[in-house]
């Protein structure tokens, strides 16, 4: 989205794409981020949704390089309390967005035996020995 788009337009796109945050770009350059949190504040204050997003977006967002490790991403998100990090390449161009849900999904994928082998209900135990 661009900085000239209206807040209302941005919020409707977020709803349609089920995204918690969007990158605001000026050509190939990242200029800001608008998140669910920003949207919540506007809803609570009864703001005008026809204002351009540039007036309410967060500028100079903390970003992560596309070459960074998952461990670095976890640290960066945890330290800053961010749930989204724009991913940028060496030329500082935005490549995408890393969401905290993506990290959780990655971990579940990498510890499949730990996570997928859990019973659906933590309290359920088989009544008798199975198999064999």
């Amino acid at each position: 989205m661009t900085a000239d788009d209206t807040v209302g337009n941005v919020m409707q796109i977020m709803r349609a794409q089920r995204n918690g945050a969007v990158l605001i770009c000026d050509g190939p350059k990242l200029v800001g981020v608008f998140t669910e949190r920003d949207a919540l504040k506007l809803m609570a204050s009864g703001a005008d949704f026809s204002t351009p997003v540039r007036e309410v977006m967060s500028t100079d967002p903390v970003t992560i390089a596309d070459s960074a490790t998952v461990g670095e991403a976890i640290r960066k998100m945890s330290e800053g309390g961010y749930r989204h990090l724009p991913i940028i390449d060496r030329q500082q161009h935005p490549k995408g967005m890393l969401a905290v849900s993506g990290i959780v999904h990655y971990l579940v994928d990498h510890f499949p035996e730990t996570v997928y082998n859990l019973p659906p209900d933590p309290k359920a135990k088989p009544r008798e020995r199975e198999g064999a």
Binding site: Q12, R15, R18, E36, R37, A39, M43
Partner: peptide, 10 residues
């Protein structure tokens, strides 16, 4: 927040 975005929005 997600409910606010999905159900209230503009």
């Amino acid at each position: 927040e997600r409910d606010a975005l999905m159900k209230l929005n503009t």
